[in-house]
């Protein structure tokens, strides 16, 4: 049986891992390669590295980091942050990333997804959706949550699938950083609507939150950062817990 994936996310700025609380106030959590290796050894199924550097220098450091990660890690990893073009995607895949995650650029230029899927295959094109509840609707936010759009997140997800996205990384901006649990209803709605996998992100605080997002939320994978970085939830313990709850996981 295909197992549910646990994915630690590492936000990287100038070669260092950081985690934003509601995308501001950054706290440092170590060396990205060492941390990634530790997660891999503990049983993480995949990793996501997000580049949050704004500078050209930071981007360059990130690419070097990607190739170091590819040398060291024996599990798949996705990279994202600031991807704007086919050339950016190509450079990151060439550096050894298994998948890339595109966010704002897909909204600015949706054709990028068609082109990327055609050039590199859908399996390596993840599109991130940052959603925020506005008057009982889930709307897309872009530029790291700084800009509110009027695009319906569910409709957008459907369009992305048609354009060739291989996977959706869904973050609820209302839940991110709160540790109060994932956006279960939104995740379930999106996952049931799509024929591609949905990675749920934002709000993990307890092991029950993970169990809920797989059962009630119907997520294919769950992503979290701080609960893993600060060892609040050790991955082996989480997997054992999920297994006891009859959720298929890789032990």
């Amino acid at each position: 049986m295909l197992t549910k994936r646990i994915i630690p996310c590492l936000d990287v700025q100038n070669g260092e891992t950081v985690k934003g609380i509601n995308f501001v106030n950054l706290r440092s959590a170590g060396d990205p390669v060492a941390l990634g290796k530790r997660y891999s050894e503990e049983g993480a199924d995949e990793l996501v590295y997000l580049d949050i550097s704004a500078s050209i220098e930071g981007r360059k450091t990130f690419r070097e980091l990607v190739s170091r990660v590819a040398q060291e890690l024996n599990i798949p990893f996705t990279v994202g942050g600031g991807i704007k073009s086919i050339a950016d995607i190509s450079a990151l895949l060439k550096a050894g990333a298994d998948k890339v995650s595109v966010n704002t650029a897909a909204v600015v230029n949706p054709h990028l997804i068609d082109e990327a899927a055609k050039a590199f295959g859908s399996q390596c094109i993840v599109v991130a959706i940052d959603a925020k509840a506005v008057e009982k609707k889930w709307l897309l936010t872009i530029y790291g949550g700084r800009e509110q759009s009027q695009i319906n997140a569910l409709e957008w997800a459907k369009e992305l699938q048609e354009r060739g996205a291989g996977e959706i990384l869904l973050t609820s901006m209302d839940h991110d950083g709160t540790k109060n649990g994932f956006a279960l209803e939104l995740t379930a709605q999106m996952s049931e609507m799509l024929s591609i996998p949905v990675i749920a992100s934002g709000g993990a605080g307890t092991m029950d939150h993970f169990a809920d997002v797989f059962t009630i939320g119907k997520a294919d994978a769950a992503l979290a950062a701080s609960v893993f970085h600060f060892r609040e939830i050790p991955i082996p313990q989480l997997k054992k817990y999920l297994q006891e709850k009859q959720i298929p996981v890789r032990i």
């Binding site: 295909l2 197992t3 994936r5 199924d45 399996q123 996977e167 024929s195 294919d220």
Partner: peptide, 13 residues
Amino acid sequence: PPSEKVPHMGWNQ
């Protein structure tokens, strides 16, 4: 067949 999500992506036995 499209009875489950395709691609088959992730860890399986």
